[in-house]
Simulated assay, not measured.
Amino acid sequence: MLSIIQAAGWPIWPLLATSVIALALIIERLLALRRSRVLAADLLSEASLLATRPQIPADALARMERSSALGRLYASGLRARHLPRARLESAMEDAGRSIAHELERYLNALGTIAAVAPLMGLFGTVIGMIEIFSGWSPTGGDPAQLARGISIALYNTALGILIAIPALIFQRWFRARVSEYVLALEQAGARLLDALRPNDKGVAG
C-alpha cells in the first residue's frame, strides 16, 4: 500500500489528508448529534418546577445548560420567564437559532469534501498521466510499464471517489438528523412557553 501511495505521486497526499479530515468530522458529528446530547429526557418537568421558584439558583440553570441543547433552550426561557410572552418567545427563538447553527457545524465542510474529493482525485490522475506520457517515446518503451503507470495514476481518482461517497452519505444523514432535532426543539420550546405563559397566547407584549 505504501509503495502504491509513493508511486501515485504527490497529489495523493492532499487526498489522504482530506480523508483524515472527513473521518474526524464524521466522528465528531456522530458524538455531537447523539440524542442524549441534544434532547435530554425529563427536562420539561424540571424546567416547570424551577419556574415556580421566585429565584432560580444559577447552578441549576448552568447544570441544565450543560445537559443538552434542549437544556440550553429551556435555560434561556427560564431566564426570561418574567418578560411578556412575545419577548419571552423572542428570547427562546434567539437561543434556538444559535443551537440550530451549532447543530449544523461542520456539515458544510463535509459537503465540500464530498464535492471536491473526486476533483482532487481526477487532478492527481491527470498529473500522473502527464508525467507518464511526457517520458514516453514513440520509438520505444515497455507497454506493460505504461499500463502499470496508468493504473497507478488512476488510484488518485479511485481514492477521491472513495472519500466522497461516505462523506456525502453522512452529510445528508446528518442534515436529516439536524432537521429532526430542530423540529423537536421547536415543539419542546412551545411546550415550555405555554407552561410559563399559559394565559398570554396571542397577546402581544
Rank of each mutant, 00 (worst) to 15 (best):
I163C: 05
S179F: 04
Y74C: 00
R105W: 08
P54D: 09
S36A: 15
T18A: 06
L183Q: 09
D59E: 13
I169D: 00
G9K: 10
L83F: 07
I150V: 15
G189W: 02
P138K: 06
P143W: 01
I161K: 07
A80Q: 03
R191C: 08
L23T: 14
F174I: 03
P57N: 05
V178I: 06
P198D: 12
L50R: 09
I152K: 01
S19M: 09
S134H: 13
L88F: 05
R53C: 05
I161Q: 08
T112F: 13
I4G: 00
L44F: 09
G140T: 10
G160Y: 09
A62R: 09
A47F: 10
A195H: 09
E102V: 03
L196D: 05
H101M: 14
I169M: 11
M64L: 15
Y181M: 07
E89H: 09
R63I: 05
A167S: 14
A184K: 11
T52F: 00
W136F: 13
A195T: 13
R172K: 11
R175H: 00
F123Y: 12
A164E: 01
M92N: 08
R63W: 05
E46K: 12
A91D: 14
L154V: 11
A80E: 04
S90A: 15
L183H: 12
T125R: 11
Q171Y: 10
L83I: 01
I165T: 03
H101T: 13
G135S: 12
G121V: 10
L162D: 02
D59W: 06
S179R: 08
S151V: 07
E180G: 15
L39I: 12
A24S: 09
R37S: 12
I56S: 01
A91M: 13
E102F: 02
A144Y: 00
S19P: 04
L25C: 00
I12L: 13
Y106I: 03
W136L: 14
L168M: 15
R148G: 08
N156E: 07
Q55M: 10
L50Q: 08
I99L: 02
L193V: 13
I132T: 15
R175D: 01
A32K: 11
L88W: 06
L110F: 05
N108A: 13
A91V: 09
R34K: 11
A22V: 07
A114G: 12
I127F: 11
Q171F: 08
A41H: 14
P143A: 04
I163Y: 05
S151P: 04
A17L: 14
Q145K: 00
K201W: 13
L33I: 03
F170M: 14
L168V: 11
I21G: 00
G205S: 11
A22W: 08
L39T: 07
F174K: 07
R177I: 06
S137I: 02
I150K: 05
I169A: 11
G149V: 03
L61D: 11
S76P: 01
A164F: 01
I56K: 01
P84T: 04
A114P: 09
A164V: 07
A47L: 09
L31I: 12
L73D: 02
G71Q: 05
I99Y: 03
R37H: 12
I27T: 08
R29T: 02
A41M: 12
A17K: 01
I161L: 15
L192Y: 08
L50V: 11
A109D: 06
A62M: 02
F170W: 13
V116P: 03
